[in-house]
Amino acid sequence: MVRIFKIVATLEGLSLLALFFIAMPLKYYFETPEYVRPVGMAHGILFIAYVVLAFMLKMEQNWPVKKLLLVLVASIIPFGTFYIEYKYFSKQQQS
């Protein structure tokens, strides 16, 4: 479960960065809006998967509420998921 969460967290973080730093600048500065919808959709799906997996891991590993809230808040901050993956999951065994 941790392995899947780490993959989804990385993809979610990359999709957020792609949305903020590629798709949205293309839309607003170069008048090319067609990239926002697919990148935004991918990010939305990955965000939902990240949140669902975070709740599943909370139950499986008996996380305190504070850790769950940190993991969830990190999903809306650029580079946040990378920090969480490094801080909480880099030393754990993959399952």
Rank of each mutant, 00 (worst) to 15 (best):
S15A: 04
K27F: 09
L11G: 01
F21E: 08
K27D: 09
Y28K: 09
F30G: 03
A18K: 03
L14V: 08
A9C: 11
E12Q: 12
F30E: 05
Y28M: 05
A9S: 15
E31P: 00
T32V: 13
L26V: 01
L14H: 05
L16N: 01
E12Y: 01
K6G: 14
F30D: 02
I7S: 03
F30C: 02
V8G: 00
R37M: 11
L16R: 01
L19K: 12
A9L: 13
V36P: 03
E12K: 08
E12I: 12
K27G: 08
S15V: 10
K27M: 03
Y35R: 06
T10Q: 06
K6Q: 15
K6M: 14
V8W: 03
T10W: 07
P25A: 14
E34N: 11
L14S: 09
I7P: 01
V36A: 09
V39G: 02
L19Q: 06
E31M: 05
S15M: 09
F21N: 04
V36F: 11
Y35F: 14
R37K: 12
L17A: 02
P25H: 15
S15L: 05
T32P: 03
Y28D: 10
F20S: 13
F21W: 14
L26Q: 10
Y28W: 14
Y29V: 01
A23C: 07
F20Q: 07
A18P: 09
K27C: 06
P25D: 15
G13Q: 00
P25I: 13
G40I: 08
V39Q: 03
M24H: 07
P33E: 15
A23K: 04
F30W: 13
E12M: 05
P38H: 13
K27N: 07
I7N: 06
Y35A: 07
F30M: 12
Y29I: 03
V8Y: 02
L26R: 03
P33W: 10
M24E: 06
P33T: 13
E12N: 08
T10F: 13
G40R: 08
P38E: 04
P38M: 07
Y29D: 06
F20G: 14
Y28I: 01
A18H: 05
F20L: 15
T10L: 15
V36I: 11
R37H: 04
L16A: 04
V8T: 09
E31K: 03
K6E: 15
A23W: 07
Y28G: 01
L19F: 14
P38L: 02
T10H: 10
T32C: 06
L26G: 05
V39K: 00
T32L: 08
Y35V: 12
P25Q: 15
V39M: 00
F30T: 10
I22N: 05
L14W: 04
V8C: 01
S15T: 12
I22Y: 15
G13C: 02
V39F: 00
A18M: 08
I22L: 15
L14R: 00
E34M: 12
L26A: 10
Y35E: 06
F21C: 12
A23T: 09
V36E: 11
L11N: 12
P38V: 11
Y35L: 13
A18C: 09
K27I: 09
F21L: 13
Y35W: 15
K27P: 11
L19E: 12
Y29R: 08
E34G: 06
L11Y: 11
Y29Q: 03
G13I: 02
L16H: 00
A23D: 01
M24K: 13
R37V: 12
M24V: 15
Y29P: 01
F21R: 07
V8Q: 05
